[in-house]
Amino acid sequence: MFFPEYRPRRLRRTEALRAMVRETELSVKHLIYPLFVCPGKGVREEVSSMPGVFRLSVDEAVREAREVFELGVPAVILFGIPEKKDEVGSEAYAKRGIVQRAISAIKKEVPELLVVTDVCLCEYTSHGHCGIIKDSEVDNDATLEQLARIAVSHARAGADMVAPSDMMDGRVARIREALDEAGFSHVPILSYAVKYCSSFYGPFREAADSAPQFGDRRSYQMDPANAREALREAALDIEEGADILMVKPALPYLDIIRALREEFNHPIAAYQVSGEYAMIKAAARLGWLDEERVMLESLLSIRRAGADIIITYFAKEVARKLGR
């Protein structure tokens, strides 16, 4: 029997050999863990569609942050559920807003943990859209001023990085300008540069109480059919001052992550969103797949596509499995 000179199975024979030639690494240092912060004290309310994910009061968020840091996960990203909502999302930039209080408390108790903050209005507006509504439509330019106020308020509270997720045109430039004018030129921007209008966000909208009350977000989030547009969006955000580019969702858009990796030298982040997490959890509960192996494989595929950073609800589980 004839075999070619090179036989690939030679390097697959043992774990030591496989590890030696492994091309992609998955480590806890690549992960960011999302936290949903809500009013109250001692609140730890599980999100029904996201087993293992909770709405947390500030004191519980601090406890969770400490656990995350001790597991070796380097960063959390905060999403706020305010006590009240209004048409312009004023609680998003309130000095004693829910996220502002959480930032301060976490940085006081776990100062070495990186705190990233979501900068958007959807959790804070009574209509559930990511911007200011005028004549039944989201007003892009009016929204920019609100986003800048939010970002500066987060920086003042101690945030290490801000992450605008609204998909308004020009938001990165306006936020960069506002941060610099307020003395926070050292605070980087992780831009949701390529955020698709995806059906995979459903569980998140339950967790953050952020579903739009009318219409949808197709006029500002990207069309899932478009790939070249992703490169244009990313290029604009780089030009405006973004430090890190993010693709959201992750697994259905691995081709987009790869395209950005090949086109740009900036760090690339990807968000393994709530629907991706919920599908794995649900299938595992039904015994249809091995949760741990699928969790690791899915995250490894996101890294292999080119992501340097992954936001994932599995961060703690990965840390327990892989260690520091």
Rank of each mutant, 00 (worst) to 15 (best):
D237K: 01
R285W: 02
S198W: 08
Y6A: 10
V194A: 07
C130I: 05
A16N: 13
R261I: 02
D180P: 00
V116G: 00
A259V: 10
V172G: 10
H127E: 03
L121G: 07
E112V: 00
I309H: 00
M295P: 03
K321T: 06
V37K: 10
Q213M: 12
L300R: 00
A282V: 06
V187Q: 01
H266M: 10
D141R: 14
S165G: 11
D290L: 13
D223L: 10
Y253F: 14
F3S: 08
D118V: 06
A250Q: 12
L56V: 08
I257G: 04
L254R: 08
H154G: 03
G42M: 10
S185W: 06
P8V: 14
M295E: 12
G158Q: 12
Y196L: 09
T24G: 05
R304T: 01
F54L: 10
K108H: 05
E45H: 11
M246R: 01
G215M: 13
S274H: 01
M168A: 13
I244L: 14
A227V: 15
I280V: 15
L17K: 09
V318L: 10
R217S: 02
I268S: 09
E87F: 09
S49N: 09
P82E: 11
A94R: 12
V119T: 10
E112Q: 08
A270Q: 07
Q146S: 11
L17D: 04
G42C: 11
E64T: 14
S298V: 08
D166K: 04
E15S: 09
F200W: 15
L31N: 08
L114S: 13
S185P: 00
V58W: 07
R205G: 10
L113T: 00
P164H: 04
Y277E: 09
P51Q: 07
K108E: 14
I103M: 02
V99C: 01
R149L: 13
F3M: 09
L299W: 03
D139H: 15
R258W: 03
I132E: 03
I103N: 00
A193S: 15
T125D: 02
E91G: 06
P4N: 10
S57I: 05
G275Q: 08
Y192T: 06
Y196I: 09
R258K: 13
